[in-house]
């Protein structure tokens, strides 16, 4: 309905703003547009299955389809370096990390009925409202805008590398420091809690109180391990 309304407004105002659009043809899509549309439908459908399926491992595998479809969209937009980085990092490592996380948290094989929380209808209303507003605004704003995909690729590895190492060197180096901080943070978070609690507190005033703290905290850790095994 929104698309129809916007196209109606487009036809109404097309005599004034459609001068540049007539060279492209509004209702005669090119081959790249048809391919983009088909891959986009597959991507969006896989994303919908990812957020609605009841089987946790299937959600991760449908996420692979979504991210791979997005890589194909990047290729259609002539951003080939981004496409291969997407395949390498997202499909190659992020999904594998998610599958490891599902495995380590003992995700149930098969359907888990409590995958969705109780407020899913409110979430659906919020998401549909946000989608309607965003699609309406975007279609209305970029109605007469075309991307020129002819000529040399805008996102070839040469162009991306040149801009990245000529204009974006400082953020690039800062990003490496950020990755190091994330690595150290992940290691600190995933250390055993028992090793941390067995070390005495630094500002313990008396030995008796600190020993009581140690016994209590070790008992706490043992109980939490029992809960984890359960």
């Amino acid at each position: 309905m929104i698309l129809a309304a916007s196209s109606a407004t487009y036809l109404a105002t097309g005599h004034t703003t459609g001068a540049a659009a007539q060279t492209h043809g509004f209702l005669s899509p090119t081959g790249v547009e048809i391919a983009f549309l088909l891959v986009g439908l597959v991507t969006f459908g896989a994303a919908l299955v990812t957020v609605t399926t009841k089987q946790l491992v299937h959600a991760a595998l449908w996420l692979v389809v979504t991210l791979g479809g997005l890589a194909v969209e990047y290729l259609l937009l002539t951003a080939e370096f981004i496409a291969w980085v997407q395949v390498l990092i997202y499909v190659g490592s992020v999904v594998v990390l998610l599958l490891f996380g599902l495995m380590l948290t003992r995700a149930p094989i098969g359907r888990s009925p409590d995958a969705d929380s109780g407020n899913r209808w409110a979430a659906l209303a919020v998401a549909v409202a946000a989608a309607a507003a965003l699609v309406w605004v975007v279609v209305d704003a970029f109605r007469t805008t075309w991307i020129d995909l002819d000529g040399p690729a805008a996102g070839s590895t040469e162009a991306t590398g040149a801009s990245l190492f000529q204009n974006w060197v400082l953020p690039f180096e800062a990003l490496s420091v950020l990755l190091l901080a994330a690595l150290v943070g992940a290691i600190v978070l995933s250390r055993k809690a028992k090793a941390e609690s067995s070390s005495p507190p630094v500002n313990a005033p008396a030995t008796t109180k600190s020993s009581r703290t140690i016994t209590e905290s070790s008992g706490n850790a043992g109980r939490s391990e029992q809960e984890g095994a359960r």
Binding site: H24, P29, T30, V32, E33, F36, L37, G40, T43, F44, A47, L48, T50, V51, L56, T66, L70, E73, L76, L77, A107, S112, D114, A115, D116, S117, N119, R120, A122, A123, L124, V126, A127, V128, A130, A131, L134, V135, V138, V139, F142, R143, T145, W146, I147, L149
Partner: peptide
């Protein structure tokens, strides 16, 4: 290519993720 195709797909994917963040329990 019309710019509305990637923009609309991006908006729809964002709202799908928004639904997932709000509605999922795991």
């Amino acid at each position: 290519m019309h710019l509305a195709y990637p923009a609309v797909l991006s908006a729809l994917l964002f709202c799908t993720g928004l639904y997932g963040v709000l509605a999922r329990r795991n």
